[in-house]
Design a protein around this nucleic acid. Structure first.
Length: 222
DNA sequence: GCGACAG
DNA sequence: ATCTTGTCGC
C-alpha cells in the first residue's frame, strides 16, 4: 500500500531540532474519538538488533473485533538516530513507516509499542505515528516514561489515571490479574476511555509479547 | 547538583 | 533494549 504522510518532515535532525518539531506536531494530535470503520487493527512493535545498529519494526495486522491474524510485515534498517529518552520516535519511526508500506491493505487503527501523549512534550511515538498517518492510534507502553499514579488493584481491567501535574496523560491498566500493568495513552483520533476499552478487548487474544514472537519468527526466516 | 529516563 | 540471579505463586 502507499502511505500518505501528513505533516511530513526530515528525519535528519539534531536532538534539539527534534524536540522543537515535537512541540509543533503535538498540536496536531486529536485527543477525541474520530474513528472510521474499524475492520483491521495493527499492532506495531519496535526494537533493535545487533546492539542497536539495526532498528527493527514489526506490524501485525488482525481483524476486528475477532482478532484473527491477517498479515505480518517486518522492516529492518541501519539506525540513524540514537536512543534518547523522549526522542524514541526519531530512531524507530522510519522503520515503522517502511513496514507499513509493505502491507497489502491499510489498517484502521494502530496499537503502537510505547507512549502516546504520555510524554514530556505530549508526542510519544504512538502520537507521532498517529499524526503522520492520520490514523487512530493508541500508545501501549510496557514501562513508564513520565507521570504519577495511584496503585492499581490486582484484578484484570483495573486502571488508574496517569497524571503529569493536573493533566491526565494516560492510564495504567491491568490486562491480566497480577501481571505488570501497561501504560495506555492517546495516540491520535481516540479518547482515553476508548483506548482503554480497545486495549482490554485486544489483550486476551493478542498479548503484548505476541508481536515480538511473531517478529522473531519473521526475522529468522529472512 | 542529582536522579530519572518509552525502546 | 538485554542479561542474570534469587524468590514466589500456582
Amino acid at each position: 500500500m502507499r502511505l500518505k504522510i501528513h505533516h511530513a518532515h526530515s528525519w535528519d535532525l539534531s536532538p534539539a531540532e527534534a524536540r522543537q518539531l515535537q512541540g509543533r506536531l503535538a498540536s496536531c494530535v486529536v485527543r477525541e474519538d474520530r474513528p472510521g470503520t474499524t475492520r483491521r487493527v495493527a499492532g506495531v512493535d519496535v526494537g533493535f538488533e545487533s546492539g542497536g545498529r539495526i532498528t527493527r519494526a514489526v506490524v501485525s495486522v488482525m481483524s476486528w473485533p475477532d482478532l484473527a491474524p491477517v498479515e505480518d510485515v517486518l522492516a529492518r534498517r541501519a539506525t540513524t538516530f540514537p536512543y534518547i529518552p523522549g526522542l524514541l520516535s526519531f530512531r524507530e519511526l522510519p522503520a515503522v513507516l517502511e513496514a507499513l508500506e509493505q502491507l497489502s491493505s491499510p489498517p484502521d487503527l494502530l496499537l503502537c509499542d510505547g507512549q502516546g501523549i504520555a510524554h514530556p512534550r505530549r508526542l510519544g511515538i504512538a502520537a507521532h505515528l498517529g499524526v503522520l498517518t492520520d490514523l487512530p492510534a493508541i500508545g501501549v507502553g510496557k514501562s513508564r516514561l513520565i507521570g504519577m499514579h495511584e496503585p492499581v488493584p490486582a484484578h484484570r481491567g483495573a486502571w488508574r489515571e496517569l497524571r503529569d501535574g493536573d493533566e491526565v496523560i494516560g492510564a495504567v491498566l491491568r490486562t491480566r490479574a497480577r501481571v505488570k500493568p501497561v501504560y495506555v495513552s492517546v495516540g491520535h483520533r481516540i479518547s482515553l476511555a476508548t483506548a482503554i476499552d480497545v486495549v482490554l478487548q485486544a489483550a486476551p487474544r493478542y498479548r503484548l509479547p505476541e508481536p515480538i514472537r511473531r517478529a522473531d519468527r519473521l526475522a529468522s526466516r529472512q
